[in-house]
Design a protein around this nucleic acid. Sequence first.
DNA 1: CCCTGATTCGC
DNA 2: GCGAATCAGG
Length: 204
Amino acid sequence: MSWNDERVEILKKMWAEGQSASQIAKELGGVTRNAVIGKVHRLGLSNRNGGGGTGGASAATEAKPKPAKAAAKPAPKPKKAAAAAPQPKEEPAPKPEPAAEAAPSPVPGSRIKPIIPAGQPLPPQPSANEIDPKALAKVSEVEKKAKKLTLMELTSRTCKWPVGDPATDDFWFCGLPSQAGKPYCEAHVGVAFQPMSSRRDRRR
DNA sequence: CCCTGATTCGC
DNA sequence: GCGAATCAGG
């Protein structure tokens, strides 16, 4: 399989839409995700703009100054200067109310065409700290749509958060998908990882 | 362990 | 130019 003009176009389109390399490879067929990524790089599109951060993975390391070997290059890149939404640090202002919707990211010169795969919209700015109230609420919410798996139904990527009383008949595991190699889903990770709270300074 | 993209390097 | 192998983060 070679890179036809058509295939390249599909690649561009899907990449711009935020599809993952593996998905693109699957769609195209005959190529692996490595091939797709390689082609993407060769084409010069490395980063995707558009704001639709489809969870998953974002660029690992941002600031990556290339070891510019070209000394003389007066020609500036005619790249579009897309001004991303400013992301100031969260202010200390108490705001228990979650943001309603993600702000659209208009791309200048390009029609906005965010293909959002069905699913839950990921909060663009997941608040880092602040656990107890929020996390617990999240957990409660999550538990409502938990799959209620039994112990045997747990797999490698199901949330293994126990819910209920083991002594009761009303006991089950969350079972929601947990992709990131964590034993729990996102919500439960939040509560499972209570940094340090009530812990008496025993020693010292 | 699953996923993601990034980079390298022989072809 | 191509992409598998490898690297690196989540």
